[in-house]
Amino acid sequence: MQTYRGQKSAIISVRARDGVSIDAYLACPEGMGPFPAVVLVHHLPGWTDYYIETTRRFAHHGYLAICPNLFQRAGDGTPDDCAARVRAQGGVADDEVIDDLELFVGWVRGNKLSNGKVGLFGSCSGGRHSFLYACKREDVDACADLWGGRVVMAPNELSQKTPIAPIDLTEKLSCPLIGIFGNEDRAPSPGEVHIHESELRRFGKDFEFHRYDGAGHGFFYWHRPLYRPEQAMDGWEKILTFFKTNLTR
């Protein structure tokens, strides 16, 4: 795929059906397109600089990319304030995240610069939410789950906010899936990844999982000691190839 050294970016606000306005960071290549689109689903630390920079990274590679602040409903303050409030409350409800993501999937698909195809990209809790969305909705064309934990959940881990284990919805997965995992991770553990992979295979889903030795949780995060450059760059190459295959043809 062609890279775009010139790009445009902005913070936009989109109003949800209940009247709440949700901010999002939007980045797109210079030009009239049409471009494939990616909705980035941020992790539990929130709407962080990592996700803002990663949104621009997708624009560099030719995508209309958008990352909504999925914690904005937690109240006023900076993105860090909202994220701290959400963590103190035990996270956000799955249904709330799915509804807000649906808003942005529809917004970006209908954008005049879009080619009509949309992928999801999420890591950690965002990887879980990306997979969950692709199982509960049928309006995305590809899904990237980076080390999404709590896809496999024991009955005692379910709650009002997370009432169903995503793995129990595997049969309803509606698009191709790529999974990126570190073999030193504990959430998800290699055993949980194996269970997830077995369920995808059992239902005949279109997926590819890539597991990396010497890498644990968050090994793409270049601002953290978790970063593993060789494994991360190989993982990025696989994700970009996967999206090119499913979003540009």
Rank of each mutant, 00 (worst) to 15 (best):
V86S: 11
R87A: 13
F71V: 00
F58D: 08
R109H: 07
G110Y: 01
T54N: 11
A59L: 08
W107Y: 10
C124M: 04
G127E: 03
G90N: 01
A144P: 03
S114K: 08
I98Q: 05
P68Q: 09
P68R: 08
D100V: 01
K117G: 05
Y50K: 13
D99Y: 06
P68T: 14
D94C: 06
Y50L: 15
D80K: 15
V108T: 04
T55A: 05
C143T: 15
D141Q: 09
C143G: 13
L70T: 03
W107F: 11
D141S: 02
D94H: 13
F131C: 08
G119S: 06
F104W: 03
D100K: 02
L132H: 08
G127V: 05
F58I: 05
R150G: 13
D80G: 13
S123I: 14
T54H: 12
Y51I: 03
A142G: 10
E138Y: 12
C143E: 15
R56L: 05
H60D: 05
L120K: 00
W107C: 07
S125M: 09
C135E: 05
F71R: 01
F58A: 05
E138T: 15
A84R: 14
R109A: 09
I52S: 12
A142V: 06
V86M: 14
G110M: 01
P79L: 01
F121L: 11
F121A: 05
L132I: 04
G116W: 09
V108Y: 00
F121C: 07
V118T: 11
A88M: 09
F104C: 04
L64S: 00
R128H: 09
C67S: 08
S114A: 08
A84P: 14
G75R: 09
R85A: 11
D95W: 07
F71I: 00
G77E: 03
F121D: 10
T78R: 03
L113Q: 07
R150S: 15
R137A: 02
L103N: 02
N111W: 04
D80H: 15
G116P: 10
E96T: 15
I98Y: 08
L70M: 09
T48Q: 01
A134Q: 14
A88Q: 09
S125L: 07
A84D: 12
G149D: 02
L146Q: 03
F58E: 06
G75A: 07
C67W: 04
D80C: 13
K136H: 10
A93G: 14
T54K: 13
A142F: 06
D139I: 10
G119I: 02
K136Y: 07
R128N: 05
V118F: 06
F104D: 02
C135Y: 04
S125Q: 05
D145Q: 02
A93P: 10
Q89K: 14
L101R: 00
D145R: 01
F104T: 02
V92K: 12
C82D: 02
V108M: 01
R87P: 08
R85F: 10
E53S: 12
L70Y: 09
L146Y: 11
L64A: 00
C82S: 06
H61W: 09
D80W: 13
R73S: 10
G90M: 02
V118D: 06
V97A: 11
D80N: 15
R57N: 03
L120S: 00
G122K: 03
A134V: 13
E102V: 12
C67N: 06
H60Q: 10
G149K: 03
E53H: 15
E138S: 15
V92R: 14
I52M: 13
F58L: 06
Y50V: 15
